[in-house]
Design a protein around this nucleic acid. Sequence first.
DNA 1: CTGGATAATGCTGAGCAGTTTACTAATTCA
DNA 2: TGAATTAGTAAACTGCTCAGCATTATCCAG
Lengths: 397, 397
Amino acid sequence: MATTGTDLSRMREMNMLSIVWALRGNPPSTVTELAGRAGLSRPAVDVLVQSLVTDGWAEVEEPGTNSVVGRPARRFRFRADAGHVLGIDIGVHKVLVMLSDLEGNLVQTLRRPVDPEAAPKARLAAVDRAIDKVLRGAGMAPADIWAVTVGVTGPVDASGRTTLSTPLPGWHTADPVAHLAARFSCPVQVENDCKLAAVAERWKGVASDADDIVFLLAGLRTGAGLILDGALRRGHGGAAGEIGALKAVRWLSAPGHLEACPGVPATAAPGEAAAWVFQAARDGDRQARTAVRRYTRDLAVGVAALVLALDPQVVVYGGGFSRSADVVLEPLRQELTKHCLRLPELRASTLGDESVALGAVRLALDEVDSRLLSDGLAAPSAPRRDTSRSEEPNRPN
Amino acid sequence: MATTGTDLSRMREMNMLSIVWALRGNPPSTVTELAGRAGLSRPAVDVLVQSLVTDGWAEVEEPGTNSVVGRPARRFRFRADAGHVLGIDIGVHKVLVMLSDLEGNLVQTLRRPVDPEAAPKARLAAVDRAIDKVLRGAGMAPADIWAVTVGVTGPVDASGRTTLSTPLPGWHTADPVAHLAARFSCPVQVENDCKLAAVAERWKGVASDADDIVFLLAGLRTGAGLILDGALRRGHGGAAGEIGALKAVRWLSAPGHLEACPGVPATAAPGEAAAWVFQAARDGDRQARTAVRRYTRDLAVGVAALVLALDPQVVVYGGGFSRSADVVLEPLRQELTKHCLRLPELRASTLGDESVALGAVRLALDEVDSRLLSDGLAAPSAPRRDTSRSEEPNRPN
DNA sequence: CTGGATAATGCTGAGCAGTTTACTAATTCA
DNA sequence: TGAATTAGTAAACTGCTCAGCATTATCCAG
């Protein structure tokens, strides 16, 4: 608890930021409204908001027709388009690039299929093309981007690499941070996909009310991301949530129960096989139901371990299989009841496979915010990577 | 991120607190030293520290002989004895009461054996007697105590009860908060013993350098406490760390391997049996070594689950068996290597069975600090429980 | 069309906290 | 005894918030 002394200028800075927070994510606001939200006096807000306008962080909306009596108030709007961030999902089958303004509004979204067997070089080239297209579509240059966050599969270390394990072919030698740093001078961050999806669920998903979340990424691969006390839990080496590595937890083999279900069309790809089984179970097929039950039984051990270890408020069932939550959630709940002391809420994700990129956007925005908090707000401009403290280039805050 | 506006008075309060933090836990300091530590100017520190002295938070030490050139500086000392807190460990076999000043210095410590079969009423009566003795020994009244924290076995809910499960006979109906609230008007808090021991290890124990700690309480009972990002992880329902409830984790039966070891004296109590086995293993007894290996193998599954889930920096091996760390740590490390992706450091606790009470003291001090942060510092006095927000009387911060 | 009611804006002076600067006080060492 | 050094103190200054009042823009009733 290293409370450090404050002086006037720092105080002004903090008040400035509190105005920004009060402005952002709200409809255009009058000075009086802002004063109420920020807990400051009206004159103070007035001068602060003036200087925000001259700096370019806010803009005035001249009063139009006003239905209420009295002098109509000017309204101030946060200039969300003063800067932008990129959230990128580098998946096995696809690349997904999202361009967002500072308020989190998506400006451009682009999904591109990628050969599952593509080498890192080809995969990164596909990323580059997608980024180019998105930037061109928005009429922007790389210098206009304030932060980039990338999601990949597998535990990510502090340098943004996935040396331990990853299903992306050849990826354990890839260095996406270095690759993107060649084009972007802003902070570039790589994070695990499950963690990003968890962040997305808390931001715009089904768990926005919860501070303690276990996110379950259920698909051909199974993984987990953790939000504890409202903050993403990365782990000391970036490997939090990797409970699937435990042998007693059969997450690796769990989806196999679905593919092995009798009656699955022989021609079906693994993903289609799972969808077929879920549909058959929905239709009442006994064998399909058994396969789903076996799947959930294996799934539940790992979830129960996380729930018992962390005692979260909510477990979110997400990932590719989340569309089949209707046939999975109830058996999963029953299995968890057997294992757990205290059963958390169980919810199905609605974000689908956009959650990873969305979480990446959120983390990039957090990066921007933390920079504002530490460096204060000068006129809006793309931050440059801080090369002085280069020990943890992937964890700037 | 609800940054709220600040004004001058709040700023002064913060600077006052920063002086308190700079004063506390340090040897008597000069104004210049404090100014450096708090990041304030010398005159500013001067007036702040003056008002701390008049309020009773600090006291002056007039300059004595000074070996250095120049005018000798007055030194200011934090008045650690301005208030006191109680940390209490209600165990199966013993009650341990610690009285600490505001700096965490132990003023009185009292251990009293308790019948393991004692009913809650008798157990609480023993606690009362121990508290009385400690207070009398220090010449204090209950009104002089600023915060009380109690450690008990089993998951503790928000009201301070252990309704889910506990090895203390009859304790699931006990309400220690209500019992102590009858004598103490200050905040009273009950917490799980493993969690408190984890807090103690980070405070004065073997993990003071780490922010992410899995504490393993190994004894006749096995449990875990978690420190994540420097903060105690309680869990949404207070049941974090209860991984032992998972059937695949054999923590319940693990100590049985020790008692079942051939050669254990038939007359030995369970605790003595374990000690005998550890000593025999130390002496090279093959059967004892096998028993220890079986024990660690069962232990390791649960630890691995926690490590994989959370990716901590340190695992601390504590509890009654921590004296035998020399024969347990190495096999445990080997087992963990099999299970984990990234092996954290493994350390043996040195606090012994005082860790729970010590952690309780630390939590009580945290309670005092958080009250200072939120309410500001008037003249030092025992805080009264805040009866207005009674929904979570056990979690005042 | 005009004057009153209403509500936002703009301005001024008071108060406060911290910093800077300069000066005085107390000690050691040559 | 005086130079050097460091601590304490006082005054001037800066910059911020706040309270209150005058000003301005708009609506609405007569």
